[in-house]
Amino acid sequence: KRYRAVYDYSAADEDEVSFQDGDTIVNVQQIDDGWMYGTVERTGDTGMLPANYVEAI
């Protein structure tokens, strides 16, 4: 699945990823209600991200 960031996010922990509004997130997997795991296409960084900061595309 592919998602697009709708807000900027700065990683708060080493297992999270930072991204900017408009970034595409690929290979996304749902972890639980609030978190997903995926790769930021622009940077190649992979990690956890907050589900409410992205939307499906």
Rank of each mutant, 00 (worst) to 15 (best):
R2Y: 08
Y3W: 09
N52C: 14
D33M: 09
V17M: 03
V28L: 07
D33T: 09
V6R: 12
Y7T: 12
V17N: 00
R42A: 06
G22D: 03
V17C: 06
D15C: 15
D15H: 14
V40K: 00
V28M: 07
T43K: 03
M36R: 03
R2D: 08
T46R: 12
A56E: 15
K1H: 11
A51D: 05
G34K: 15
D13Y: 12
L49I: 14
D21I: 15
T46W: 07
V28G: 07
Y7S: 14
R4Y: 08
D15A: 13
V6G: 05
V26N: 07
R2L: 09
G34D: 15
G47R: 00
G22L: 03
D23A: 01
I25N: 00
P50G: 03
S18V: 01
R42E: 06
E14D: 13
V26E: 05
A51Y: 07
E55H: 08
G47M: 02
R2F: 08
T39D: 03
T39A: 03
V40S: 01
D32Y: 11
A11W: 03
M36W: 12
Y9G: 01
V26R: 08
V17P: 01
W35R: 07
Y53V: 08
T43A: 01
K1A: 11
T46H: 09
I57M: 11
K1E: 10
G34Q: 14
A51H: 06
D23W: 06
S10Q: 14
T39G: 01
D13W: 10
G22Y: 05
R2V: 12
S10V: 15
A11Y: 03
F19Y: 00
E41W: 06
Y9H: 06
R4P: 03
D13K: 15
R2W: 08
G34P: 03
F19V: 05
I31T: 07
V26K: 08
V26D: 05
Y7C: 15
T46A: 09
A11K: 08
E16V: 05
V28N: 03
D21T: 15
Y53E: 03
R42T: 05
S18P: 03
T43C: 04
D33Q: 10
Y53T: 08
Y37N: 06
G34H: 15
T39L: 05
R42C: 05
Q30C: 14
D23L: 02
V17L: 07
D45Y: 07
Y9S: 02
Q30P: 10
R42W: 04
V26I: 14
G22V: 02
A5H: 01
A11N: 04
D32P: 06
D8Q: 09
M48K: 15
T39W: 03
Q20V: 14
Q30D: 09
